[in-house]
Amino acid sequence: MDYFDIFVSILGSTIRLSIPLIFTALAGLFSERAGIVDIGLEGKMLAAAFAAACLAYVSGSAWIGLLGGIGISIGFSMIHGFASITNRGNQIVSGVALNFIAAGLTIVLGQAWFSQGGRTPGLTGDARFSPIILPGADFMRDVPIVGPLYANVISGNNILTYLAFAAVPLSWWILYRTRFGLRLRAVGENPAAVDTAGISVSWLRFRALIVTGILGGFAGAYLAIAQSAAFINNMSAGKGYIALAALIFAKWKPVPVMLACLLFGFLDAVANFMQGKSIPMIGEVPVQIFQALPYVLTCILLAGFIGIAHPPKAGGVPYVKER
């Protein structure tokens, strides 16, 4: 393999590995910009992956699977909202709890329903989202440089991949160009300002959490019925936390979120590629360095050594109406 082929191959897997991160980080973006800290992204993704796999298997339709994933993810969001908005509970504790519930319940139910050790049955045909070959991909393949990039990186992905990239400008548009977005950003900074403007803080935050649920559903569905063809135990494997790191790393802004996710996806792709290979001059680089890098970078950012990450001011604090 020459270097260009390696490059194309890593780029292709970077895209594939970034998609769940992008969906999940955008999900977190909506809840955190509304002032609700969401440690439970991991759980939403996992629960949604499971629901999507189950429903896609039963119905034979990937789209119904996707709807199921979205539904369960919204459900988890609503529990988070009930605990942290309605009951003013600790948002972190609630998120941690939901992660455990998702991690356990998916396997318990999976085993009870399918008896495959927590896996769901494999999906075929329309039950999963299959790659879409863009027009001219085959024709383009032989064109130098551009050809392989078009055929192997841009083309040949499933619909959710394209939706993920579409979700980035869409999120930006919602946050910065709609009334809902304006109010959502305001409630994450100063809920009292929203309240005195005659807008319900709770309802606004619940709506933000619904959006979080929808995006979390996409992330889960991507894992189970697009990237893979079944739900596998703990298949989110910490991606929810990486997405959280990406969200912080991107300073809670949509386009930087995408870039951070691509960066972290790239590190993951490199780690996979580097397994057992050595770089000239340097020798074998442990894959663990690439695995740890997203977290290390985020901590360095949090420490204020590379720019300062200002989280939404009202994040994590239940709103108590007072004069």
Partner: peptide
């Protein structure tokens, strides 16, 4: 065999949810 070990994780999550986040419910 229908009840896998992960049932514990569910219980753990529920305990955290109700004893922690919803403690004043």
């Amino acid at each position: 065999p229908n009840i896998t070990r992960e049932m514990i994780v569910v219980i753990q999550g529920l305990v955290i949810l109700f004893a922690g986040a919803l403690e004043y419910m």
